[in-house]
């Protein structure tokens, strides 16, 4: 991976466009978006349902391909990488936190956390254990996800997203499935584990608390990205 000067954005979207076709109708979702994300930045992505927020996370993570434009992450243009290479890039450099946790039900808590390490050929069980300890779930390491509460599952999901030391964490409504207090707890953990380690965090949210947590807000509206003031009433 090529390292350029420190003031180069970590993630850069250049004229990024993406649309979906249903039958004969083409739905533009992202329309010629230009956006830069600085290193260590925490950005919240707002927008109505169906505005394309998840699509934006998809294209940044390489799950989906742009129709036009470019995405450059840490100096690498991922736009034209093959599906295999995008998968490997995502494996190494991206971590995910989902609204519905998406822990692997057939793996224990510890195995869920170790999975990204193993996929990347990293032998760092100790860091996994430390992280588990940090979130207070060391004793639950041999339990299966269905035995955990929503908040506990989300904590595990956050560790899983981090454990392999990715460049970027993408979070889709990370507090969307828990109560307010648990949500706040999760934000505190994210702050401790992600922001303080200077990792980039892009979050999709409808939540005021999550929006306030971010350094910057972006609003996705009719396929276009706009800055959004943190002070505007919800």
């Amino acid at each position: 991976m090529n390292k350029e000067a420190d003031n180069t954005p970590l993630i850069s979207l250049q004229k990024a466009s993406k649309s979906y076709t249903e039958g004969l109708t083409v739905h533009p979702v992202l329309v010629s978006i230009d956006a830069d994300f600085e290193k260590g930045e925490c950005v919240a992505l707002l927008g109505r349902s169906g505005s394309g927020k998840s699509t934006m996370l998809n294209v940044i993570s390489g799950i989906d391909k742009l129709d036009n434009g470019k995405i450059i992450i840490d100096g690498i243009d991922i736009t034209n990488l093959s599906e295999q290479k995008r998968t490997l890039f995502r494996r190494k450099n991206i971590g995910f936190v989902f609204q519905f946790f998406n822990l692997i039900p057939t793996l224990t808590v510890l195995e869920n956390i170790l999975l990204p390490l193993e996929l990347n050929g990293m032998d760092n069980k100790e860091s996994a254990m430390e992280l588990l300890n940090e979130v207070g779930l060391f004793d639950r390491k041999n339990d299966y996800p269905d035995k955990l509460s929503g908040g506990e599952q989300q904590r595990i999901a956050i560790i899983r997203a981090l454990v392999h030391d990715p460049l970027v964490i993408l979070a889709d409504e990370p507090t969307g499935n828990v109560d307010k207090d648990t949500g706040q707890n999760i934000l505190n953990i994210m702050d401790r584990l992600i922001r303080k380690r200077n990792k980039n965090l892009i979050m999709v949210t409808h939540s005021k608390e999550v929006a306030k947590f971010a350094d910057r807000l972006l609003l996705l509206e009719e396929g276009k990205l706009k800055k959004h003031s943190k002070e505007v009433a919800w």
Binding site: S61, I63, Q84, T87, L88, R90, K92, N102, I104, T106
Partner: peptide, 14 residues
């Protein structure tokens, strides 16, 4: 669902 999640986490098609 499981396979979709694994693909997100970086499991390749192969």
């Amino acid at each position: 669902g499981l396979l979709g999640s694994l693909r997100v986490l970086g499991a390749t098609r192969r």
